[in-house]
Write a protein that binds this DNA or RNA. Structure first.
Lengths: 148, 148
DNA sequence: TTCTTTGCAAATGCTTTGCACCCAG
DNA sequence: CTGGGTGCAAAGCATTTGCAAAGAA
């Protein structure tokens, strides 16, 4: 709990610095949205975020949600996923270990995992193509083996 | 060229067998679409496919394209990508080495690469989670290093 | 005050669906 | 024949956009 509060403060200051550095205004909506997002643990979509904030009596528009998430993506406080559907899913990105995803196609359940070899591949690709890799996405899609 | 013809015959027979086994009908549209797709080399979206077939005087509807692609995905003759956008991109899957993608975020250019370590990660995950992995997607997003 | 940001609603664009007709089996 | 498949157009749905009003700097 205390950890969570510290995390909130930390990301708020990161966001604040980002906004200033890029000539964006520090509006209450932006900070409320960031705070709301960092209260979640799993993945969420924009509609869910919208409903949650509405039910907390916070007046936001979907347009502002999309705009703000765009900013949060730009400063790496949020990551975006598209698990094969047309619905974008988001996730807080700071204060949690970088991880990838395993999707069970029968149940739509999503598991997270970490494997250091992905970083090695990244390094190889950066050298091979003379590129700076900013982020990656790795999804495995599978079904549970029978419990027999 | 000859290779291409052989490939076409091969995938047509795979598709044919799949349709029979699953109680689907072998319509001319389905084979025309598969054939069209295997004439391409890079990625394509449904609208592009639609325009191409129209301009070849082949009468198809978008609905049939979506339906047929669904079947082709099911029998692994086509793969689907969502490079962070809401536009689904597709690619033939048979007769080409399995590969992953590097996307240049400044130019939207897409490069392909192969790295055996991804298969090793896959094996690890299968054991760790007791899962059969059917497919995966790995994208790296980056920008070219300055040419200086 | 100035100009970015917001909320709302309309518009956009990809994909899905409904339905009458068609045709593969 | 019969039920699945097709084309067309309309509907769905996530996301984007236009614009007047609000408010951060």
């Amino acid at each position: 709990m205390n950890n969570n509060l510290e995390l909130q403060e930390k990301v708020l200051s990161i966001f604040s610095a980002y906004l200033v550095q890029n000539g964006h205004r520090k509006t209450p909506e932006r900070f409320a949205i960031l705070s709301e997002i960092y209260g979640y643990n799993g993945h969420f979509d924009v509609e869910t975020l919208y409903e949650k904030m509405k039910s907390n009596n916070y007046r936001v528009s979907r347009a502002t949600l999309y705009n703000t998430i765009e900013l949060l993506l730009a400063c790496n406080l949020v990551t975006k996923h598209q698990f094969g559907k047309n619905l974008a899913q988001y996730e807080k990105a700071h204060g949690s270990k970088q991880h990838d995803h395993l999707i069970f196609t029968d149940s739509n359940e999503v598991k997270e995992f970490c494997d250091p070899r992905i970083q090695q591949i990244k390094t190889t690709i950066e050298e091979l193509f003379d590129v700076d890799i900013q982020h990656h996405s790795l999804y495995f899609y599978g079904i549970k083996k029978s419990k027999s």
